[in-house]
């Protein structure tokens, strides 16, 4: 099968080709400039960040060696005994893991309640006063910009060591993050029920309760579950600054080079995070599907 391709005469093609080449050259130049800027940034950042490739490659074997050392010695014949030696402190670690998950849960719950209360004040379609709205927004922004761990450090000094500062730090950060997401959901609602409630003389609170909340609740729950996943990870490091959970034991194991303990605790954390991810993903899909059906 052959096609006849009509070929334009050369004098007609020449300007087209020239135009094409010019366009390609302009693109190339643009790309080169972008790469040049990135390269300059890399050099600056490498100088600032004390990156020494020679030192890194001289000690490049340390990283695989480290992972090799934290891998436990398991023999097939004595698997049971080896496993129980690897997880010699399982009861204690499991208790700490439950602590960690509970810190994440309480932090998420308290933060979600706070974010729920504030999100309506931060929504442009419900609050006409720009002062209240801006105040609520700035407050939420502050809560989510300061990292959890900084709050935890402060709270550990104020409240003493233990899970309490961890829960509070997570709660404040969660309130900031969820408050913003919740407010975005509220700003995208269908305004007709709100108008209906207002038209029949409902107060602001009644409007929110009967016209807004039923529309947004399934989305809120989905965001809350997503945040819970993130908070489980965060709660696992709260112990680094003395704010409870399994992080305390992990930091000790890493600092004191208890190699097999490091891998044991890390695997526990990874397993917990994965299971929680799976469960919450299922629940979230059901929630959103349920919301779409209505």
């Amino acid at each position: 099968m052959s096609h006849a391709i009509t070929r334009l005469p050369d004098e007609q093609i020449a300007p087209l080709i020239a135009h094409y080449d010019a366009a390609v050259r302009a693109r190339r130049r643009h790309t080169l400039i972008v790469f040049g800027v990135i390269a300059v940034c890399i050099v600056l950042a490498a100088w600032m960040g004390e990156v020494k490739p020679s030192v890194f490659f001289a000690h490049a074997d340390r990283l695989p060696n480290y992972f090799w050392s934290i891998t436990p010695v398991l023999h097939w014949d004595t698997l049971g005994a080896d496993l129980s030696e690897w997880y010699w402190n399982l009861d204690h670690w499991l208790k700490l893991l439950v602590d960690t998950i509970m810190i994440a849960y309480l932090g998420t719950l308290i933060g979600a309640i706070g974010g729920f209360c504030l999100c309506f004040l931060a929504s442009a379609n419900l609050v006409k006063s720009p002062f209240i709205r801006l105040a609520a927004r700035r407050f939420l922004e502050f809560c989510r910009t300061v990292p959890e761990l900084v709050f935890a450090l402060l709270f550990v000094v104020a409240f003493g060591l233990g899970p309490l500062p961890g829960v509070l730090a997570l709660a404040i950060h969660t309130m900031g993050a969820l408050g913003k997401l919740f407010a975005e959901v509220v700003e995208n609602i269908d305004m007709k029920p709100v108008e209906g409630a207002t038209a029949s003389g409902a107060s602001w609170l009644t409007t929110v309760r009967f016209a807004v909340v039923p529309q947004v609740l399934s989305n809120f729950a989905s965001y809350g579950l997503l945040r819970f996943e993130i908070n489980v990870r965060e709660a696992s490091i709260m112990g680094f600054v003395g704010a409870g959970g399994i992080g305390q034991d992990l930091v000790e194991a890493i600092r004191k080079f208890y190699y097999s303990d490091v891998s044991a605790i890390l695997l526990l954390i990874i397993a917990a995070v994965m299971i929680i991810d799976l469960v919450t993903e299922k629940v979230r899909h059901r929630l959103l599907g349920f919301g779409a059906q209505r």
């Binding site: 600032m48 960040g49 004390e50 990156v51 020494k52 030192v55 890194f56 000690h59 340390r62 990283l63 480290y66 680094f240 992990l250 930091v251 890493i254 600092r255 080079f257 490091v262």
Partner: peptide, 12 residues
Amino acid sequence: LIYVTVVGLGPF
């Protein structure tokens, strides 16, 4: 924390 024990303290 792991990298600090591997490559030492510092931004790297």
